[in-house]
Design a binder for these strands. Structure first.
Lengths: 122, 122
DNA sequence: CGGGATCCCAAATGATACTG
DNA sequence: CAGTATCATTTGGGATCCCG
């Protein structure tokens, strides 16, 4: 008797395999700084300097790295204006909008319950 | 004229301050392994060994560490049965259920779009 | 079976200085 | 202003051994 690869009887219990696309993207958007940068951009377009000030504690290096990753993923759009002094704006792409529509409820829930969770540990 | 600390005119644009409870909990539940462990448990109670096999690639150290953190947060419940050989089961607490209710749509969206996102980079 | 304790490394992150 | 380059450091994470 033959079984297909999609046969439920032989389906692996594993969530996602190591190195699969889902894990890669998950690592980008759910990273420490990725979440905060996306959260900031979900309220509207921001310039580099604004982003740096809004995401408290982020270093220039991590901001650059995070933005490059999210831009490569097509989640964030970078627009540079050929002016002097230079001006660069970052915003969510349509894909990023869809993503944040799902992430905001989660972050909102965490924000509401975080204090209670942390206090209970003391 | 006096202004209160909650005055919207002087509200900081910062998302969350460095080290605030929200960031702490966010780091726990959105960590690389935290997400995958919670995802596994969202389908039902699992034993230590089952979790280890289901979350592909996780080491014993990280599984233990992740579970301890999530248990301390009150998101995961650990139940040990005084048998021999020992049996320990992990499941989501009511709090964890609420959390995953918000996280599943996000992870689902990522899983659907991840392949397209990663392929586009090549 | 279900972990804890240790050692150790690679990667993530921070700080600072510099540049188009 | 908007980054890049470099160096120092922390820490996430793996490997291994051990124990109740």
């Amino acid at each position: 008797m033959q079984v297909s690869l999609a046969d439920p009887r032989i389906e692996r219990p594993k969530i996602f395999t190591h190195g699969c696309p889902t894990r890669v993207v998950l690592d980008h958007v759910m990273s420490r700084w990725g979440v905060l940068v996306l959260l900031a951009l979900s309220e509207g377009t921001l310039r580099w300097g604004e982003l740096r000030r809004e995401v408290d504690g982020i270093s220039e290096k991590m901001l650059a790295s995070t933005l490059r990753t999210l831009e490569a993923d097509g989640i964030v759009v970078r627009t540079s204006y050929p002016e002097v002094p230079p001006r660069v704006e970052y915003s969510l792409s349509p894909l990023g909008d869809e993503l944040m529509q799902r992430m905001l409820p989660l972050v909102g829930w965490v924000a509401e319950h975080a204090e209670g969770i942390v206090e209970r540990q003391a």
